[in-house]
């Protein structure tokens, strides 16, 4: 039984002057514990799809269910990581990682210890009483990960969370996020425009075409690569072949436009 189902989903943006179809007839199923990437040119609606699954947007037609429950609003089993950390600058790191717990009124000693434990896992324990502006970009994104995990979601939506970082930090963070999500047995959806990142991290890669957004093709990453850390996948001999075929497919998509 799939964990997340997207069923004949169509979404359009309305303005007084125009209607833009962002996504057309998207159907997909994701199993518990899977890591799936959405890859495609800009304007293919991959971020829109993520926002719809997050419950931040309501689909024009179609349905999204998680564990048989239809999504109408942000669901408590879903966590979201943004392109940037968006840590609240007037709160300390500790207050920031408690934000979700505070809003859900589940900020008790047990959850506090859990959140601080996660912070420690990220090697950020000493930043606890600092403010976000005192931390580097990579550290802040790690804090954002702790904040998301603190409410213990089953499904993580990752909206290009590594795109604003420098290359070295990005590679390290890919490994860290991958390891953390596997350890906690999370399901994850990653939106990215970085082919290498999609191949290195995912079990499956969904390639989208634009105008309107549709799923063009699906790549299942070979099992021996699925189990490896993202950094090691990037150096495996089979990596290039998959990279090349996705690269060519994306090129064809662009030429058509």
């Amino acid at each position: 039984m799939p964990f997340l189902t997207v069923d004949h989903l169509t979404h359009a943006y309305f303005s007084t002057k125009s209607v833009t179809t962002a996504l057309e007839d998207i159907s997909l199923e994701i199993e518990e514990g899977e890591f799936v990437s959405f890859l495609g040119p800009s304007g293919c609606g991959k971020t829109t799809l993520l926002s719809l699954i997050a419950g931040l947007l309501q689909p024009t037609s179609g349905e999204i269910t998680i564990d048989h429950q239809t999504i109408h609003r942000p669901h408590k089993r879903i966590g979201y990581m943004f392109q940037q950390d968006y840590l609240l600058p007037w709160k300390t790191i500790e207050e920031n990682i408690y934000l979700g717990l505070k809003i859900r009124r589940t900020l008790n000693d047990f959850n506090r210890t859990l959140a601080l434990g996660l912070l420690d896992q990220m090697n950020l324990k000493e930043t606890q009483s600092k403010f976000p502006h005192e931390l580097s970009g990579g550290m802040r994104q790690r804090v954002a990960l702790v904040r998301t995990l603190a409410t213990n979601p089953s499904l993580l939506l990752l909206d290009e969370p590594f795109s604003a970082l420098d290359y070295q930090t990005k590679l390290k963070l890919e490994n860290l996020v991958f390891k953390t999500l596997k350890e906690h047995k999370k399901t994850a959806l990653l939106v990215t425009h970085d082919i290498g990142e999609a191949v290195a991290m995912s079990d499956r890669v969904l390639v989208f075409s634009a105008n309107p957004g549709r799923i063009k093709s699906i790549y299942t990453i070979p099992e021996h690569l699925q189990r490896m850390k993202p950094f090691d996948v990037r150096h495996h001999k089979d990596y290039n072949e998959i990279f090349q075929s996705i690269w060519e497919e994306l090129n064809q998509l662009e030429d058509k436009d």
Partner: peptide, 27 residues
């Protein structure tokens, strides 16, 4: 107020009162 901060609060199930208290007013 940066809508992304608002989204952070919304993703934790925050209502308008949370958005106001945690983000809009301090910002």
């Amino acid at each position: 107020t940066d809508p992304n901060y608002i989204k952070v609060v919304q993703m934790f199930g925050g209502k308008k009162i949370h958005i106001f208290k945690e983000v809009t007013l301090p910002a």
